[in-house]
Amino acid sequence: MPRIIRAVHGINDKIKRQLGIGLQVSSITMTVFYIILMYIWKFTFPEFEIPVIIKAIIWISAVVRIVICMFPQNNWCTDEGNMKLSIIRNAVFAVTGIGVIILYLISGNWIQV
């Protein structure tokens, strides 16, 4: 909704704040989705066991990303943001995604664990 308001009425501090909070919430939600996707994999392929190291990588990287997303230094609600934290949180998110990709590769018998 804030994007529609911005398109119609232009930008102001209230809209900037709403858009920033929306970015923060969507970053956390995407991370939670990867955790859920891990459990969907587990229920879809009950004959496979999640390797402990992969499960740990997914959980630890997800928690680290959520913690990083909560830092006020991210400057979610400003124009300048924080490039350093952006790179860190997205690199950690890539690790989470790679963990989930590995699970789906295992179930496709591409990798034997």
Rank of each mutant, 00 (worst) to 15 (best):
L37P: 03
Y39T: 12
V8W: 09
I21P: 01
N12T: 03
V32L: 15
I102K: 02
T31Q: 01
K16L: 11
L103F: 00
L103I: 13
V8F: 06
G22E: 10
N90H: 15
I40N: 03
C69I: 00
R17Y: 12
V32M: 09
T31R: 04
G10D: 09
C69L: 03
I15C: 06
I4A: 06
I98P: 05
E80Q: 13
L23S: 14
F33C: 13
G22I: 14
V8E: 12
G10L: 09
I68A: 03
Y34C: 08
A94I: 13
I15P: 01
V63S: 10
V100I: 13
G22F: 07
D13P: 04
T29S: 15
W59N: 10
I11T: 15
I35M: 11
W41Y: 12
M83N: 15
F93R: 00
Y34W: 08
K42T: 01
L37A: 12
I5A: 06
S27I: 04
I35R: 00
K84I: 09
N109Y: 07
V67E: 06
I28G: 02
I88N: 00
R65A: 12
F43W: 11
E47S: 05
R65S: 14
V67H: 01
P72K: 11
G10C: 10
P2K: 11
N109H: 04
K55I: 01
A94W: 09
T31I: 08
I106D: 00
P72N: 13
S61K: 02
H9K: 15
I60S: 08
S26Q: 11
R89P: 01
N12H: 05
P72V: 15
N109M: 07
I60Q: 07
I98Y: 15
A62N: 06
S86K: 13
R3M: 13
M38G: 00
V100D: 02
R17N: 13
F33P: 02
V67R: 06
I60G: 07
T31P: 01
I101T: 15
A56D: 10
K42C: 00
V52R: 02
I102E: 07
K14Q: 13
I57C: 05
I57G: 02
I58M: 11
I58A: 08
A56E: 12
